[in-house]
Design a protein around this nucleic acid. Structure first.
Lengths: 256, 256
DNA sequence: GCATCACATTCGACATTATCGAATCTGCGG
DNA sequence: CCGCAGATTCGATAATGTCGAATGTGATGC
């Protein structure tokens, strides 16, 4: 691991969470000398990844960062496969569909198919959601070999967020049985989710896809099974296109 | 400039344009030893900016890149101001509206207000267009002090792309007079544009905003003036919100 | 309008640290 | 089973990034 590159990436990470920082604030966060940070930041700036407010001299992320994101999306096979299935899922259920990939402790949304009714919806591609607080995340965690993923801090986001490892583990067991994960107002009040995992040609979880359901519309009984079936079907179909041999794929036996 | 960080950014740049590359291909492009590149790439990978195909061992951009992009958009005052004006412009003209910021030789789209008719349109936020081949780019170049911007390669994209510095310079003179730039099928066949520059509190060009017009719908006569007036009005309004004292602001006198 | 302050920026000596070439490992094709 | 092409690891070298101190710059208060 190259020290200065590592530091550069940590700087980008800090700027991501803190938006605008002075040089000395940045140096403080990283516990480095300001002059050290200065050299790195100026290099990042020269490449357009960081820019400096003229008035405050504070640093923030620059346009270079945005350019990269799109290329990642373009090269992501999961995404290109998911697009058409997401459209069909939304057409069938009437709910918005999201596709996400795992990041340590989080899920990154890589596709968003908006609800068909013309309601104004924020573009959600690129946002991240704590894995333990969304259906996509639970679907991914349940089929990930590393159980360590649910070891981190389980940050509370609403009254109903699962915050204890025990409850989460119990839920994940159920997800494995059902092959769908659910979430009810655990990340955002008024918003629920239902998602299923997607596997690739190595039979490894590479992401998840699911619907976003307004809390009052949560389907009961047969309606629930219909929606769950549709989500399962889409996830299975995408997995097959990616070369997965079966669906769902139980996680590698961590225990004997 | 820190050498290894600079190299890391160049690696990201190469991956951006080439999508997937083996380690030795990467090393070749940068004219560096493979082992040198390896160290850097692994550092980038540890931070999620790069990932490696399991099958081919090729490297490509990773999810970390996408996360950054959104934060840049959120902190961009030009964008937040432009959103409502773009909506109004699209409502008034019926055309899609784009907002862009300058990158060396290119324009980066930071907002896209789709046409109101329900036609399926690609999300275009994050894409870049050669500055000399789009209305946004010409609007920006015409009011940039560095005339060097039009010195680079003027890559031909369609039959009508402006490829000679002389013709471009002549067009930019006209843009300065009119305070709107036009582009007719110079980047994409069937697509025209009309854009005006946006200035900030330092009376410096920070971007441009304009409409995308399907070639057959290009307005003539009075209709043209109506659209041009609307685009000028929106650009002027945003500039005022950003603290610009006048509009348009002629570029700094490069000549005596 | 001047002095003061805080902060960004530049500079130079030092030793840490990245670099490169060679050696090793891995997976694929014959 | 062997050979090859590529990725990866290792170790010596000196180039390079790092840090502290000095300098520049813009903002604030008197």
């Amino acid at each position: 691991m190259i020290q200065s590159v590592d530091r550069a990436m940590r700087i980008l990470g800090v700027l991501r969470s803190s938006r605008r920082l002075s040089l000395s604030e940045l140096a403080g966060r990283l516990e480095l000398a300001p002059s050290t940070v200065h050299g790195i930041v100026k290099t990042l700036q020269a490449h357009g990844y960081v820019l400096q407010d003229r008035a405050s001299a504070h640093y923030r992320l620059g346009p270079g960062a945005l350019k990269l994101g799109n290329v990642y999306l373009d090269t992501l096979e999961l995404r290109s496969r998911a697009v058409s299935w997401a459209a069909e899922l939304t057409r069938g259920t009437g709910y918005a569909t999201r596709t996400g990939v795992p990041l340590p402790g989080e899920v990154l949304i890589v596709h968003h198919e908006p609800r068909p009714d013309g309601s104004r919806q924020m573009p959600e591609v690129g946002i991240t959601i704590p894995a333990h607080a969304c259906a996509l995340g639970k679907a991914i965690l349940a089929f990930s070999p590393e159980a360590t993923d649910c070891a981190g801090e389980l940050r509370s986001m609403t009254r109903d967020t699962v915050t204890t490892p025990e409850r989460l583990r119990a839920q994940l067991d159920e997800v494995r049985e059902q092959a769908v994960a659910t979430e009810r107002e655990e990340a955002v009040i008024g918003e629920c989710g239902l998602a299923a995992p997607v596997f690739d040609g190595y039979d490894t979880v590479v992401g998840a896809l699911g619907v976003v359901v307004p809390a009052p519309d949560w389907p009961a009984g047969d309606a629930y099974e219909t929606v769950a079936g549709a989500v399962r079907g889409a996830a299975r179909a995408i997995s097959r296109e990616l070369g997965a041999t079966r669906w769902p794929v139980p996680p590698d036996p961590g225990q004997g």
